[in-house]
Design a protein around this nucleic acid. Structure first.
Length: 478
RNA sequence: CGGGGAGUAGCGCAGUUUGGUAGCGCACCUGAAUGGGGUUCAGGGGGUCGCAGGUUCAAAUCCUGUCUCCCCGACCA
């Protein structure tokens, strides 16, 4: 733990697990596939939570909470849903020492129980739309787990809405896709591709699923958030019905959408480097860390005084700042320590700086001298605020340039096979399951999505050659 | 779930082949010196070897079972 992480180009997977642990984000729990989210990782999640929650409320949603336990029979009401989720359910069969009459599933997602409640709450067109979100933990018994990316239990938010018309529900589904896109781009600084999932990749029980797909540092794809248009599938299965203006009974149209702690994995892999995390300023638990530098007590007093004043100055300006006053570590140690934790700006305050009434600022995203600047105390909060914005944009641009450099327009299966070894492949696709499956079998890559942003025109399906109007993105995914 | 690897101090490991009662580095504690890129020296604390059972005078070491983690595949947010 004393030295650095495994370099990315040596073993990306190990780099990832090293960073997660050494940056103090999470630790392994004594239960298979479960993790402990440590305070630093949780602080990042809280910022993700706040940034999303704000957006949900701005778009008219409210929060509520539904139970962890769901009667097993609920899963059997929607055919595709039960098929999709049964294999990964954790089920409680004993309570209080007694075998339960009906086993209880621990929620893998809450469409069923929320659908059940909606059927009781919704009576009239005047009750619609219902726009509820919940922040919760869910459990999916996955085969293989990875910290943040796929854990047995994870935290997320799941929005569940019910509408009077198909149009409204579709609109809601796309609106939330926009919300996720906006969040990913502007808060997490991850250039995501919003798109529609193919039939075989969509959510169990949905008519259409949408995703924001991101490219990680190893050029693999990560589905970072999803929204689903359920049509009337769940409304019919759970009797979510209302009386319209003509006193006629109608089924609702429902949606659901979720974004999980996986987003933390996305942030780590989209921006991180061999020195550790690189956090986007808008989400970083600590935006500026102050490292005081002194040789002896004589220097220590004025340096600490100046450092503390800077701390107060930034804090008053609403900047998330930390003063690293540990006496047992050398400055060099602290530099590496905070770089590992991805703090966007390091402020060095030493005797020379005190004499000049200035500080040294070092950017996490630009190593070495190039990322350093000298800033006077006077307008420090302004300079830092601007620098945080600059860094936010810089890491976004860097991630975008990386993705673009590793995205290929391909016209043959051979080209596609080659492309997915080095990123994303964009290809005309006829939309058939057969072609999708064939491509998957031939290239070991999957259809990530059909981007919302289409080039227009038409071309020949990369597999069957049929005239196609949409391009799809293929890649190797997490 | 299939294939491979591994569980010994907080972390990383040696010791296991040839059973004899546990060691190294880092971290931690104390002191001194140091301090603008992972300081140095000295002293010190901490484990009974993933867990359960078995063989034996004796088990980290041999046997059986079990749990967990990592890597690669099939499935998934």
């Amino acid at each position: 733990m004393a030295e650095g992480v495994t370099p990315q180009n040596e073993d990306y997977s190990r780099w990832y697990t090293d960073v997660v642990q050494m940056a103090d984000m999470a630790d392994y729990a004594p239960v298979r596939g479960c993790m402990v989210i440590k305070p630093y990782g949780y602080a990042l999640w809280e910022n993700i939570h706040d940034a999303l929650d704000r957006r949900f409320k701005d778009t008219g949603h409210v929060n509520a909470y539904f139970p962890l336990f769901i009667p097993m029979s609920f899963f059997e009401k929607e055919a595709e849903h039960v098929e999709g989720f049964s294999p990964e359910l954790a089920v409680v069969t004993v309570g209080g020492g007694e075998k339960l009459e009906e086993p209880l599933a621990i929620r893998p997602t809450s469409e069923t129980i929320i659908g059940h409640m909606y059927s009781q709450w919704i009576k009239s067109y005047r009750d619609l739309p219902v726009l509820i979100n919940q922040w919760a933990n869910v459990v999916r018994w996955e085969m293989r787990t990875r910290l943040f990316l796929r854990t047995t239990e994870f935290l997320w938010q799941e929005g569940h809405t019910a509408h009077a018309t198909s149009e409204e529900a579709v609109e809601e589904t796309l609106r939330m896709l926009d919300v996720y896109t906006d969040f990913a781009m502007n808060e997490a600084a991850i250039p995501v591709i919003p798109g529609r999932k193919s039939d075989s990749e969509k959510f169990a029980g949905a008519i259409n699923s949408y995703t924001i797909e991101a490219m990680m540092g190893d050029k693999r794809a990560l589905q970072s958030g999803t929204t689903h248009y359920m049509g009337q599938n769940f409304a019919k299965a759970f009797d979510i019905q209302y009386l319209d203006q003509n006193n006629e009974l109608q089924n609702c149209w429902t949606t659901s959408w979720g974004l999980s702690t996986r987003m933390i994995g996305a942030i780590i892999m989209a921006h991180g480097d061999d020195k550790g995390l690189v956090l986007p300023p808008r989400l970083a638990p600590i935006q500026v860390v102050i490292v005081p530098i002194y040789k002896n007590d004589e220097e220590r007093v004025p340096v600490m005084e100046a450092a503390d004043s800077r701390f107060q100055q930034l804090k008053a300006a609403g900047i998330r700042v930390k003063l690293d006053d540990r006496t047992e570590c050398t400055p060099g140690f602290k530099f590496n320590d905070w770089e590992m934790r991805g703090v966007p700006i390091r402020m060095e305050v030493g005797p020379k700086d005190v004499a000049n009434q200035s500080v040294v600022l070092a950017r996490r995203d630009i190593p070495g001298r190039d990322g350093k600047s000298f800033v006077s105390w006077a307008d420090l909060e302004t300079q830092i605020s601007e620098l945080l914005v600059t860094i936010q944009k810089a890491i976004f641009d860097k991630a975008l340039a990386f993705r673009e450099a590793h995205t290929y327009n391909v016209e043959t299966i051979e080209e596609l096979t080659k492309a997915v070894d080095d990123g994303f492949a964009m290809a005309w696709w006829c939309g058939s399951r057969e072609c999708e499956a064939a491509i998957k079998a031939a290239t070991k890559s999957t259809n990530r999505c059909i981007p919302m942003d289409q080039p227009g025109g038409s071309g020949k399906c990369i597999h069957c050659g049929a005239e196609s109007t949409e391009k799809a993105i293929f890649g190797k995914a997490y």
